[in-house]
Every structure is written in C-alpha cells, then in structure tokens.
C-alpha cells in the first residue's frame, strides 16, 4: 500500500494519465481512504488545459471523409429486404386507405419515402482461404454516399493498395482504392453508389491508383443484390 508521500510524488503523472496500471490501482486504493490529496483535481484541471496550448493544424480534407466513412459504416444496418417488405406493405395499405381517404394515402407515401431514404447495409465475408477480413458496405440514399469499412486486413507493401470493385453480372467496375491502418482496419468512401450492382469485392492491386480490371483474387466479397 502506498503512503501519502509516494502518492504525492505521482500526482502529476496521475493528472497526465501517465502511470502504469499497477500504480493507478494502488493510487486509487489510497485515494479512496485518504482525504489528504485534494489538489489532484486542480492538477487534473491544469493537465486538461495543456492540449489547448498547441496551435491547431488543419488536417487533410480526406481525414474528415475517413472519420465519417467509419461513422456511417457503424450506423445501425437496415437490410434492404426489410425495406422492400415495408414498401410493399405501405403501397398495399395506401391502396386500401386511398379508397377511404386520400389524405391517409398521402401520409403513407411520406412514410414510404422516409423508409426509402434510410441507410442500407450489407455484410462482407472472407473469400480467400486463410483470410480473416470482414466488413460492411453502408449506403446512405439521402446523401448518395457509400462507405466500406473492413477489419482484419493484412499490411501492404508500399507500392500496393486495396481496390474496391462493384460487380454487375460478372462485370467489375473500380470503385476506389485505400490502404489499411496499422491495426488492419480501413474505411473508404466509394467513388460511385452501389445502386444497380449485385456484388462488392476487394482485391489487392498495384498502387497508387489501382487497376482498371482486377489482377488478383478477391479477399473479401459481399452480395448486394436488390
């Protein structure tokens, strides 16, 4: 158990969040039973001000795209199939209600429109033996924006990139290139919306611009058939 002097010595490091887990546990245990370290809160307040001494530096515009791609990819998925059911139900209901009151039919059309604007997502699964890559493609109709998020990607050589393909009836169209983060994750906004395509796939290609047609086997794919 640490004594008061040992805890006092560590207070600046605690305020910086810069102590080992073991030290943090011991200090926490001490503080829970000792009222003699009131100025820790003051030190934490000072520490919280230090980042504001650093001048802001505008990041590349692409960083916001990456942040938002990851966020959109994390939105609660709403499968397209459900939308079709909802729409079908809505149209049938509208037909019945229209016989009773035109106004209710209009309201139902508005509900249907809102559902059509809801995000859609599709899961991607490994397509190569030994690959652990998984992910999701999310499409936001209102923004006409499609984002792909992946995890479990292998690191790439400096002259290689991953390339996204949207495929219709076996014909692939390039939809963007990206590089993974150090932790094997990646997020990328597609160059085009997935409407009209039946499959999404990712291959490894020569960088920095990728290929016009795939030159390797897909490592991850997903059905986006409508």
């Amino acid at each position: 158990m640490m004594d008061c002097a040992a805890v006092d010595e560590l207070l600046p490091a605690i305020a910086f969040g810069n102590v080992s887990p073991r030290e943090a546990r011991e200090v926490e245990a001490h503080l829970a039973s000792c009222q003699g370290h009131q100025h820790l809160a003051d030190l934490q307040r000072v520490a919280s001000m230090l980042p504001m001494s650093v001048p802001p530096v505008p990041p590349r515009d692409e960083l916001k795209h990456h942040v938002m791609a990851r966020v959109y990819g994390d939105l609660e998925p709403r499968p397209l199939r459900r939308l079709w059911w909802q729409r079908t139900w809505s149209l049938a209901a509208a037909a019945v209600l229209a016989a009773l009151a035109l106004g209710l039919g209009v309201r139902d059309w508005m509900v249907s429109s809102q559902l059509a604007a809801a995000p859609m997502s599709w899961q991607l699964a490994p397509a190569l033996a030994g690959t652990r890559t998984t992910g999701a493609l999310v499409y936001l109709p209102r923004q006409n924006l499609a984002t792909l998020t992946l995890e479990g990607l292998q690191p790439l050589a400096p002259d290689r990139v991953y390339e996204v393909w949207l495929i219709k009836a076996g014909k692939p169209e390039p939809a963007g290139v990206f590089k993974p983060s150090a932790d094997g994750s990646a997020s990328s906004i597609l160059d085009r919306p997935p409407s009209g395509f039946d499959t999404v796939a990712v291959t490894e290609e020569p960088g920095p611009q990728g290929s016009s047609t795939p030159t390797s086997q897909p490592l991850v794919t997903g059905s986006i058939g409508q």
């Binding site: 650093v54 001048p55 802001p56 530096v57």
Partner: peptide, 12 residues
C-alpha cells in the same frame, strides 16, 4: 464536432 475540434485534435 469534427469541424469544431478537428484542427485542434490533429495539431495535438
């Protein structure tokens, strides 16, 4: 929030 904090975060 990104518009408000992005540059400060990146600078840090």
């Amino acid at each position: 929030l990104y518009d408000l904090y992005g540059s400060q975060a990146y600078g840090l």
